[in-house]
């Protein structure tokens, strides 16, 4: 696997290509990803979410500066919605981060959701792995920022940064309700705007009242990403959180859950593929669907019927 070797030597082009192949579900990507597995599991994975217009990309842009000063190589996955009608997307989050585009220690990749709900794109998990193997640490995942669905981000990330902003009105209230429990670090961006202190106080109050006490008390910080003010503290808080979960054992639990989920997903995919390609005779699947549709058969019995020969064979 030439592409794997190139990637492990730090070739950004190889990583970029492999992410595309994983996104397009190219069969060759599976081989490469399995070869890479041993080289992953090192990076801190940070999810960044918040309502549209909060300045997520700008916060990340400034955070990258801080990480680079500390000598970290940073991977960024910026996710934008894919149109459900055309399948197309304009991916523009990186506009904010273009000052880092020629820095070899920074890898930015834009991804479309491609019909995936949950705020993370389908190829994200693979892309995280690939950047991990490329030696990026941390890996920052910027979500679509569409509200409730952001909860999905927790599944992939070690630390979740929530970017808020004063004065977005009612939307933010609805947004807040959905993200309080998933945030590990909160930052109120555009802190020079009117209402910033109020937004901080509100968030703190909500965190105290709406939540079970947690061993990690999420800090609520203020920043002005436009000029970078307060971003150093945000990065410090993310570092502390990572240290905390490592020490408390929460990281192991998260990683274990991720591994389990990944394994289950692979298994499910493989099984479904095996069954539809190997077990079912040509046209049989469609015929079963037709009978289910006509209420001549129920889906449970149909599955039972299909799996019978496999179960007998064991």
């Amino acid at each position: 696997m030439e592409i794997v070797e190139r990637l492990l030597k730090g070739d950004a082009g190889a990583a970029a290509r492999l992410i595309s192949m994983a996104e397009d579900e190219d069969p060759r990507a599976v081989k490469a990803l399995s070869a890479l597995h041993a080289h992953t599991g090192k990076a801190q994975i940070i999810g960044v979410t918040g309502p549209p217009g909060a300045g997520k990309s700008t916060v990340i842009d400034q955070a990258v500066k801080v990480y680079r000063k500390k000598g970290c190589k940073v991977g960024i996955l910026a996710i934008d919605p894919t149109s459900p009608f055309t399948g197309g997307a304009i991916l523009g989050d990186r506009i904010r981060m273009q000052q880092h585009s020629t820095d070899p220690g920074v890898f930015i990749r834009s991804m479309g959701t491609r019909g995936w709900t949950g705020g993370l794109s389908k190829g994200t998990a693979s892309a995280i792995k690939i950047l991990d193997a490329l030696g990026m640490d941390p890996i920052i995942v910027e979500t679509v920022g569409a509200g409730q669905s952001e909860v999905e981000i927790v599944r992939s990330a070690h630390s979740v940064l929530i970017v808020e902003v004063p004065g977005l009105g009612d939307d933010i209230q609805a947004f807040k309700a959905g993200i309080l429990e998933i945030g590990d670090v909160f930052v109120v961006n555009k802190a020079d705007r009117e209402g910033a202190d109020k937004a901080v106080a509100e968030l703190r109050a909500m965190l105290e009242t709406c939540q079970e006490p947690r061993a990690w008390a999420p800090p609520v910080l203020k920043a002005s990403a436009r000029d970078g003010a307060g971003i150093g503290e945000v990065v410090d808080a993310l570092d502390s959180h990572f240290a905390f979960i490592k020490q408390s054992g929460a990281k192991d639990l998260k990683d274990r859950a991720s591994a389990e989920r990944e394994f289950m997903e692979v298994l499910r995919d493989r099984l479904a593929k095996y069954i539809t390609e190997k077990v079912v005779r040509k046209g049989e699947f469609d015929a079963l669907v037709e009978r289910i549709l006509r209420r001549q058969l129920d889906p449970y019995s149909a599955a039972e019927k299909l799996l019978e020969p496999i179960e007998k064979g064991k």
Binding site: S57, I90, G92, D93, I95, R96, R226, D227
Partner: peptide, 10 residues
């Protein structure tokens, strides 16, 4: 004064 960067809209 610093330099202006535009909001990323398209």
């Amino acid at each position: 004064y610093g330099e202006y960067r535009e909001p990323s809209l398209y």
